[in-house]
Simulated scan of single mutants.
Amino acid sequence: MSHAHSFDESTWPFRAPINTASFTTIRVLDASLPILEVYHDHDGDWQFMCGTTNASEDAKVVCLGCMVERDPTLVQLADLPDGWMAYRESPEHPWSREEYEDSDAENEA
Rank of each mutant, 00 (worst) to 15 (best):
D79A: 13
E9M: 05
H3I: 03
R97P: 07
G51W: 03
R27Q: 08
M1F: 05
S32H: 04
E106S: 14
T25R: 03
L74W: 02
C50S: 15
R88S: 11
N19M: 04
L80V: 08
S6N: 07
D82I: 03
T73G: 05
F23S: 12
L74K: 04
D43A: 09
Y100I: 11
L29A: 07
L33P: 13
L80H: 08
F23P: 00
S2F: 00
I26L: 11
D45T: 09
S2L: 10
S103T: 07
T11F: 01
D30S: 05
S2E: 09
Y87R: 14
D58S: 14
D45A: 11
L36H: 11
S6H: 09
K60E: 13
A16E: 14
T11W: 02
R97I: 00
N19V: 01
D82A: 14
N107P: 00
M49G: 09
P72G: 08
R70D: 05
L77I: 07
A86T: 08
A86Q: 07
G51M: 03
A55G: 09
H93E: 15
D58P: 00
E98C: 13
V62S: 05
T53E: 07
E92G: 13
D104C: 15
P13S: 01
S90N: 13
Q76F: 04
D30V: 05
W95I: 04
S32P: 12
K60Q: 12
E99N: 10
S32A: 10
P34Y: 08
F48V: 04
